[in-house]
Amino acid sequence: MSAYLRLRAVPPPALRNSANWLERCFEGDAKTVRRYRDQERIYAGVPPHPPVRCRPGAQVVLGGRPVFRADRHRPPFLVLTAAQTRRVAGFLAAADFDALWDFARDALLPRYGGTAAESETWGAFAAAHQELRAFYARTAEHGDAVVKWLPEA
Rank of each mutant, 00 (worst) to 15 (best):
D71M: 14
A140W: 06
R6L: 08
P51I: 03
G28S: 10
A82M: 09
W21N: 07
K148T: 03
A117Q: 08
L62Y: 12
V60K: 13
D71I: 14
D106M: 09
D144T: 00
A116L: 04
N17F: 04
E27T: 06
L108H: 06
G123W: 02
Y136A: 01
A134G: 07
A153Y: 13
R53Y: 10
R65K: 14
F125T: 03
G64W: 04
G114N: 01
T85Y: 05
A95N: 08
E120W: 04
A99M: 10
E152S: 05
E120A: 05
R55N: 11
R41T: 14
R6A: 03
P51N: 09
M1S: 08
S2H: 01
A3F: 08
E27I: 05
A82I: 06
R37N: 10
A70V: 10
E131F: 04
R86F: 03
Q84L: 03
T115C: 00
K31M: 07
Y36N: 10
A14F: 10
W122R: 14
P66H: 10
G113Q: 10
H129W: 01
Q84V: 01
A44H: 13
L62W: 08
G90K: 09
F77S: 07
A117I: 00
D98S: 15
R74P: 01
G45P: 00
R105M: 04
A145T: 02
L92H: 14
L15P: 01
E40I: 04
I42G: 06
K31I: 00
T85K: 08
K31A: 14
H73D: 15
D98G: 12
T139S: 04
T139N: 06
R87A: 11
L109G: 07
A145M: 07
P13H: 11
R53I: 13
Y43F: 15
H73C: 14
